[in-house]
């Protein structure tokens, strides 16, 4: 059997170019495997060879998605691969979005099969699970070995054009594409069996998981913004210098509430970011770039808004589970209501 040619897509970090300070690099390529590519190389053995690695900075990709994707696809096409492996991205949001976009682009524009891997809560999952196979991984790079073990056999099958099993069999996240099949038992019998298990408290598998229809009806607009009390909330991790509450840089377990009384401008001496998922340089230089206290103070003075609420709330969105973020936001929401806040500006990085 002819050896399968693989191109591997990575971000700047996994491609060993650099951390957040290099997140703005444009796409580049190297021959052969890099970083996690070594683990894939080991697992592929003689069946496939990683002929090249294409890398791009996460910020560059997300800020210039069209330009970046076009350049990456050109590079990938030049190597004429049989399959493209992206990531895995674990729970890195921007990396996940990039991996999903690249894999989808490879499939749809180059007509070459592609695969990626992510943690189920990565925003890239919701955006791309219908268009590409996304293997379910742990939320951090400690899950690399498990991810490789699932991605390699699936990649080989896709490259060879073999039939792909169900999401449960192959370990990818259900694509949300509904496909008919003839089951062994008729529907009524399946319903009786499911009910017996459900009544006994035993595990059972629904044939159609309810979609997340969780949408909140928009609240009415603020009637008179010049009288409104406005609060600032951020998931960009802005905290007083020294991070007094020790909010984690990733998978935050808490949020902070900080007093803005008498503060007209956030500066490098007094504020910084605790967020570990983006280049902190610019926020550390001037935290107003994430949390615009300076302008809102001007608006307050000019009478454009009633007032800026005394406290701001901050947490780190990076890799934080949806359930946790929900919990913090619920608590924050209660306090905001108690403080008589009329409107909220929430900034994200």
């Amino acid at each position: 059997m002819k050896q399968i040619k693989v191109v591997h897509y990575l971000n700047q970090f996994f491609a060993q170019i650099g951390g957040e300070e290099k997140a703005d690099i444009p796409p580049e390529s190297k021959s052969g495997p890099v970083g996690p590519g070594m683990a894939f190389k080991g697992a592929f053995g003689d069946a496939a060879e990683i002929v090249a690695t294409v890398a791009c900075g996460d910020s560059y990709f997300n800020e210039n998605p069209d330009v970046a994707l076009a350049a990456i696809l050109d590079m990938i096409a030049s190597f004429e691969p049989d399959i493209v492996v992206c990531g895995p991205a674990f729970n890195a949001g921007r990396y996940g979005v990039a991996c999903g976009a690249v894999a989808t682009g490879v499939r749809e524009k180059l007509n070459i099969p592609a695969i990626t891997g992510m943690y189920v809560e990565n925003p890239g999952v919701d955006l791309y699970k219908q268009s590409v196979h996304i293997v379910s991984t742990k939320d951090n790079a400690a899950g690399m070995r498990d991810a490789v073990a699932l991605m390699v056999p699936l990649a080989l099958k896709l490259a060879r054009g073999e039939e792909i099993g169900t999401s449960a069999e192959e370990g990818y996240i259900p694509m949300g594409i509904r496909k008919n099949f003839f089951d062994k038992k008729r529907g009524s019998r399946r319903a009786v069996d499911m009910l017996l298990k459900k009544m006994a408290g035993e595990p059972y598998e629904t044939e159609f998981p309810m979609p997340d229809f969780d949408r909140v009806v928009p609240n009415p607009a603020v009637k008179d913004i010049s009288k409104a009390k406005i609060a600032l909330v951020t998931s960009g991790g802005i905290v007083p210098k020294g991070n007094p509450d020790r909010i984690e840089s990733s998978s935050a377990s808490k949020y902070g509430k900080y007093d803005l009384e008498g503060i007209r401008d956030l500066d490098a001496q007094t504020y910084e970011t605790a967020h570990g998922g983006y280049d902190p340089v610019y926020a550390n230089e001037d935290a107003d770039r994430v949390l615009p206290v300076d302008i809102l103070r001007e608006f307050e003075k000019e009478g454009k808004i009633g007032s800026l609420s005394r406290y701001f709330y901050s947490t780190v969105g990076n890799g934080t589970a949806v359930a946790s973020a929900k919990k913090y936001a619920r608590a924050i929401g209660e306090e905001l209501v108690a403080d008589g806040v009329d409107a909220v500006i929430l900034t994200s990085t």
Binding site: N62, E63, G93, R94, V97, P123, L127, D214, R215, V216, P218, N219, P220, A221, V222, V233, S235, T315, G317, A325, K326, Y328, A329, R330, I332, G333, E334, L336, V337, V341, D342, A343, V344, I345, L346, T347, S348, T349
Partner: peptide, 21 residues
């Protein structure tokens, strides 16, 4: 986060770069 604050009854604007998310 943004949804939970909206749910609390306060109108909220999400200022962010990656709009699809």
């Amino acid at each position: 986060m943004v949804k939970e604050i909206e749910r609390a009854g306060i109108p909220v604007v999400h200022m962010c770069t990656v709009v699809p998310i």
